[in-house]
Amino acid sequence: MEEVERELPPGLSEDYPLAASQIEAYARDGHILLRGVASEEEVAAYEPLLSELVRRGNRHDKPVEQRDTYGKAFIQVGNLWEKSAAAARFTLARRFAKIAAELMGVDGVRLYHDQALYKEPGGGHTPWHQDQIYWPLDTDKTITLWMPLVPIPETVGSMTFASGSHRNGLIDKTVISDESHRTLAQYIEGKGFPQKTYGAMRPGDATFHAGWTVHSAPGNPTDLMRKVMTIIYAADGVRIAEPDSNARRADLATWLPGLAPGDVAASRLNPLLYSRKSEAP
Results as ranks from 00 to 15, higher is better:
63 P>F: 04
214 V>W: 00
73 A>E: 06
197 T>G: 14
187 Y>T: 08
79 N>G: 00
137 L>I: 15
102 E>C: 03
61 D>M: 11
107 D>T: 13
22 Q>N: 07
188 I>F: 01
268 R>T: 14
102 E>V: 02
118 Y>N: 13
62 K>P: 02
140 D>S: 15
211 G>Q: 10
29 D>G: 04
63 P>R: 05
24 E>L: 07
21 S>V: 09
109 V>E: 04
32 I>H: 00
60 H>R: 15
263 D>R: 02
159 M>K: 06
198 Y>L: 09
139 T>M: 11
97 A>R: 07
190 G>A: 13
27 A>P: 03
133 I>S: 05
264 V>C: 06
274 Y>I: 08
65 E>H: 13
257 P>N: 11
49 L>C: 12
119 K>F: 09
34 L>I: 06
228 V>L: 10
90 F>Q: 08
241 A>C: 08
121 P>G: 07
76 Q>W: 15
245 S>W: 00
127 P>C: 09
13 S>Q: 02
209 H>E: 04
204 G>S: 12
277 K>L: 14
85 A>Q: 15
67 R>L: 14
96 F>I: 13
162 A>E: 05
187 Y>L: 08
38 A>Q: 05
8 L>V: 10
278 S>T: 06
142 T>E: 14
221 P>V: 07
81 W>S: 12
31 H>R: 04
117 L>A: 13
30 G>H: 01
85 A>G: 15
17 P>Q: 10
69 T>Q: 13
56 R>K: 15
159 M>I: 01
100 A>K: 08
116 A>N: 04
45 A>Y: 00
187 Y>G: 01
8 L>I: 08
171 I>A: 10
91 T>A: 13
178 D>N: 14
29 D>K: 06
185 A>C: 09
273 L>K: 00
147 M>C: 14
219 G>I: 02
216 S>W: 04
86 A>I: 06
54 V>T: 11
